[in-house]
């Protein structure tokens, strides 16, 4: 505990003999100098720490961060644009391929049709030739038929006359047969 002399000293204005505060220590003017001095030292220290180290560092970090974020956003935008472009290109390639396939199938169809038409025409030609030939044969047969009939009738008439016991005169029979056949 304090001894007698300095209790009357500068501390004694604010502190009683038991070491307790007299009134409000805040209002003790003996301590103001100390408060003001150390406050100024403290403020200068904090100010120097902030301006020399802390604030440039924090603002640099914040600026760098916002730069990074905007860069990343721009990159994302770019990638999105690329994706859209790729999709367009894909769609275009798909449409091209579809058109190409259509073209190829059309060509094939046309070629097949041409071949088929040629074959049909050839077959028709053959059929026509064959039917003309047949017609000719039929016509020949048809043209030959009256002569054959007359000949058969002549032979039959000669045989009938012979069978009836007559004497078949070839000229008479021929004349009679010709007359009958013509008469028909």
């Amino acid at each position: 505990m304090a001894t007698e002399p300095y209790q009357q000293d500068i501390a004694g204005e604010c502190v009683n003999t038991l070491g307790n505060a007299i009134g409000m220590p805040q209002l003790c003017d003996a301590w103001f100098g100390n408060q003001i001095f150390w406050l100024l030292v403290t403020l200068v220290a904090i100010y120097l720490i902030l301006t020399k180290i802390a604030l440039p560092r924090v603002s640099a970090v914040l600026a760098e961060r916002s730069g990074t974020i905007s860069n990343d956003l721009a990159a994302a935008e770019d990638l999105k644009r690329q994706a859209v472009e790729a999709e367009t290109a894909y769609e275009k390639a798909l449409a091209d391929a579809r058109a190409e396939a259509q073209r190829i199938s059309d060509e094939a169809r046309a070629a097949i049709k041409a071949d088929l038409d040629a074959a049909i025409a050839q077959a028709d030609e053959k059929i026509a030739a064959k039917s003309a030939e047949s017609q000719k044969a039929i016509d020949e047969i048809r043209a030959g038929a009256p002569a054959s009939v007359a000949e058969v009738a002549r032979d039959v008439a000669a045989e009938i006359v012979k069978a009836l016991g007559g004497k078949a005169d070839a000229a008479t029979v021929n004349a009679a047969v010709d007359a009958r056949v013509k008469g028909n």
Binding site: Y6, P25, W31
Partner: peptide, 25 residues
């Protein structure tokens, strides 16, 4: 109110507190 008293950090309690004294403040 005793908590608000300014005391020298070093030396005897009750030593005079001048403007440069290192105190609890």
């Amino acid at each position: 109110m005793d908590q608000f008293m300014i005391k020298p950090l070093f030396g005897e309690y009750g030593d005079p507190v001048s403007w440069y004294t290192v105190t609890n403040l």
